[in-house]
């Protein structure tokens, strides 16, 4: 596959003349956006938003094709990326699962099989409870969870971001949670609205509708600062009225999930630079701002070394938990 592709690239270069090779790298055929989640998932919306921004603002001449490869919690997409080493026409969209998945499952790729392009936003995590639940704040909640029977906490997937956070909270407080994995954050949201579980740690966007309708409410957000102010969501509450967990006395300061973009390892540096440019332009558009606002994410754009050091810190934090819980396979 790889050799075929590089032959193809070489042939293209010959056909289109040496002049193109001299100039900066530019895609000459459709670029594939590989989405490491199913259609409709958070990563899918992320990739398709970028696609629509690129199309609307003519940021790239070559057309974009979106391909969903969400099997195995996204591993399918990364394995595909690793198998396309040196091919600059495969842009891979994901989260922190790119570098965390290989720790908890034996997979056919290594994080180093891809080079980072950009981390475009940070998704927040909150503790949500059913609207009728008796807990007024996070302290009440943690106290209730310290009782011998503990509380039932739902989340998306197993040994993934949600369960990692739950076990961090558990270690920080000594509370006891029974973690129930569902297929998606959306399912966890509905189960909470129906009071089948006691809480979940969904991203803002996954519980937004239920909060607005007064079926669930947030207790606190795992962030150093409160979230950006916006319109009122439920009653007189807006996102910025949610206390941080630290304020509430829960000693877990920061837990966020990056929305990341990668290229297969071995692509020319010019190609990385080209896509960094395109994404930089994309994140300055009003469409991107409205995506960030609508999904209540934190607007933080990282590339190059900044992104590398973020990844390293995030990885270390998670690996500690994996080791402690005995999830690590390597």
């Amino acid at each position: 596959m790889n050799s075929k592709m590089s032959i193809a690239a070489a042939v293209c270069a010959v056909i289109f003349g040496a002049t193109a090779a001299q100039a900066e790298w530019k895609p000459t055929k459709p670029v594939e956006f590989v989405v490491t989640s199913g259609a409709g998932g958070g990563t899918d919306t992320f990739a398709r938003t970028i696609q629509s921004i690129i199309a609307k603002n003519n940021l790239m001449e070559a057309p974009v094709v979106v391909v969903n490869k969400g099997g195995g919690s996204g591993a399918e997409g990364y394995v595909y990326g690793a198998g396309n080493a040196g091919n600059p026409y495969k842009l891979i969209f994901g989260t922190n699962n790119q570098y965390l998945l290989p720790y908890v499952a034996k997979l056919g790729y290594k994080p180093a099989d891809m080079v980072p392009v950009a981390s475009m936003a940070l998704d927040e995590f909150l503790i949500w409870v059913n609207a009728e639940a008796p807990y007024k704040d996070i302290k009440d909640f943690v106290d209730a969870a310290k009782k011998p029977e503990g509380l039932k906490m739902g989340g998306s997937q197993s040994k993934d971001t949600d369960q990692t956070l739950v076990s961090i909270v558990q270690n920080a407080t000594g509370a006891k949670f029974t973690y129930i994995p569902f297929k998606s954050g959306g399912e966890a949201a509905v189960q909470l609205a129906g009071a089948h579980i006691d809480a979940n740690v969904n991203n803002p966007n996954e519980n937004f509708g239920q909060w607005k309708a007064g079926m669930v409410r947030p207790l606190c957000v795992f962030s150093a600062n409160r979230m950006a102010a916006g319109a009122k969501v439920a009653g007189d509450m807006s996102w910025s009225d949610i206390p941080t967990c630290k304020e509430g006395g829960l000693n877990v300061e920061n837990y966020q999930m990056p929305r990341t973009v990668w290229l297969p390892a071995g692509v020319p540096d010019d190609a990385v630079k080209f896509f960094v440019d395109v994404l930089t332009k994309a994140q300055q558009t009003p469409e991107w701002k409205s995506y960030i606002e609508r999904t209540s994410q934190t607007d933080r754009f990282l590339t190059g070394d900044e992104m590398r050091s973020f990844v390293k810190a995030d990885e270390e934090k998670a690996v500690q938990v994996f080791k402690k819980e005995g999830w690590a396979v390597q």
Binding site: G38, A39, T49, F208, Q210, K212, A213
Partner: peptide, 25 residues
Amino acid sequence: GIPGSATAAVMMGGLMIWGLTPGPM
């Protein structure tokens, strides 16, 4: 906001892109 099928999931994504939030409200 529970998509019953893959197609419904994609439509829900569409709803959000158009600025609507699926849910009781």
